Amino acid sequence: MTAAISLEYRQTDFPLAQVFRIARGAKTEAKVVEVSLIQDGKVGRAESVPYNRYQETIESVANQLDYVQNRLASGVDIDLILAAMSPGSAKNAIDCAFWDLKAKLAGKSVAQLLALTEPASCITAQTLSIDTPEAMAKAAAALEHPPLIKVKLDNQDIAEKMQAIYKASPNSQFIVDANEGWSMSQLVDNAKVLADCNVVLIEQPLPTGEDVELINVKLPVALCADESCHTRKDLDYLAARYQAVNIKLDKTGGLTEAVALAQEAQALGLDIMVGCMVGSSLAMAPAYLLASKAKYVDLDGPVLVAKDREYGFNIDRGLMSALDHRLWGGASANY
């Protein structure tokens, strides 16, 4: 008889290597939730990042996990529990921990179970947080000309900052992330300058809801939905307004929905960006399996935290190493 699945969780705080600033604020540490699912002596793990933008806190996620813990203890099937949960970081942690557990029980990798191509390596963007033009240019130069840099920009000195960064790293391509911080006029007025600075993608320039204005807008730089894209139900709205979608597992509620979202987005002709909240390599690991489907990868959490987890990813000038199954996603470890 198969043993029941039990759930354990804990909060872990990862100090950041430096202050991380985006359009809606700054942070000095990543507060994450680590979930473990245990069955038959095997342990599946995952990490999620509760995000205030989506009305999530460590406490609200803990409340959801307490509920799931009680449901599992009362004998409710985990698949039924997951099906009833709303997308978000609590569901993400459970879904990804369950995939890790299934891989260990089956003696296979998660990539094999999902029929995904697991990359041997990939290029990930490396992120510049908001600062002065001079400081951002210095930070860009310190990255030593990686292929892809992600630039956080608020609505102040957009062109000046981007021109300074481009001058410091002229052979890189750039993704600009406004985090809902611009107006339509700021987007239109700066699009040509950004294109001239090797910017290939602009993420979520307008606030969610206000991006209705983007329908059939033609700009010299492609637009990517982030805060407006959570699950497949958003795609019909997004397809006429954006050219790409940023898939983050804390928004989709785990790898299961993320894979389905990627497949349907591609069928609609949208490019895929796989992204992350600020967390450790354990949060990046499930998302890494989507890299083979993605035109853009933004999984640089391991270089943003001051100290990563054991068996984490190595990122050298934007080249992200292979997933180590001792961390997550394979049968080579038993935690």
Rank of each mutant, 00 (worst) to 15 (best):
L128Q: 01
A17F: 10
V221H: 11
L268D: 01
L194C: 09
L214S: 06
Q204D: 07
L255M: 12
T117V: 13
V76H: 09
V245G: 02
P205I: 06
L114V: 06
T28D: 11
T12N: 08
A267C: 00
L37I: 07
T208M: 14
L201R: 15
S280N: 04
T132G: 08
L282K: 02
V151Y: 12
G279C: 15
L214I: 10
K295N: 11
C276W: 00
D189M: 03
V68A: 10
G75P: 04
A168G: 08
Q266M: 15
S129F: 13
R10F: 05
E59T: 13
V199I: 08
A287N: 02
V110G: 08
G88V: 08
N155Q: 13
D157I: 01
L80K: 14
A115T: 14
A294S: 15
V200S: 14
A191N: 04
T127H: 05
Q11G: 04
H145T: 13
C122E: 08
I5A: 06
S129L: 04
V303Y: 03
K27E: 05
T132D: 07
Y166V: 01
L282G: 05
V76A: 13
G275R: 08
P286S: 03
C96N: 15
A258T: 09
L65P: 04
V43D: 07
P50H: 09
G275V: 03
A164I: 13
N63I: 10
E160S: 05
D298S: 12
L255Q: 03
T252F: 07
S36M: 07
L187W: 06
A30V: 04
Y288C: 01
L37P: 02
V19Q: 15
A322C: 12
T256P: 02
V35K: 00
R241I: 12
G209S: 11
G301M: 04
K150R: 14
D234F: 10
F20T: 09
Y54R: 14
F174I: 11
A83I: 03
F20M: 13
C197I: 05
L289H: 04
V19T: 15
K251T: 04
I202G: 09
D250H: 12
L101C: 03
L219R: 02
L304W: 06
S74L: 06
N92S: 14
T127C: 05
G329V: 12
I38E: 14
Y311V: 00
I123L: 10
S36L: 04
L223H: 07
N246I: 06
L113E: 07
N190W: 03
I123V: 15
V297F: 01
L299P: 08
P205Q: 06
P207Q: 15
V259R: 02
Q186P: 00
N334H: 08
A125Q: 09
V33F: 05
N63T: 12
R71H: 09
D324N: 15
A240P: 03
A93F: 11
K104R: 15
W328T: 00
S121Q: 14
E134N: 03
L299Q: 07
L214A: 11
K91S: 02
L261Q: 05
L255H: 01
C197L: 09
V200G: 01
G312S: 10
D157R: 14
L37Y: 11
I158H: 03
T231G: 03
W182R: 02
N246Q: 08
D177A: 08
N155L: 02
R317N: 14
E213D: 15
T256H: 10
G312Y: 05
E47S: 12
P87E: 02
A222E: 13
S60F: 04
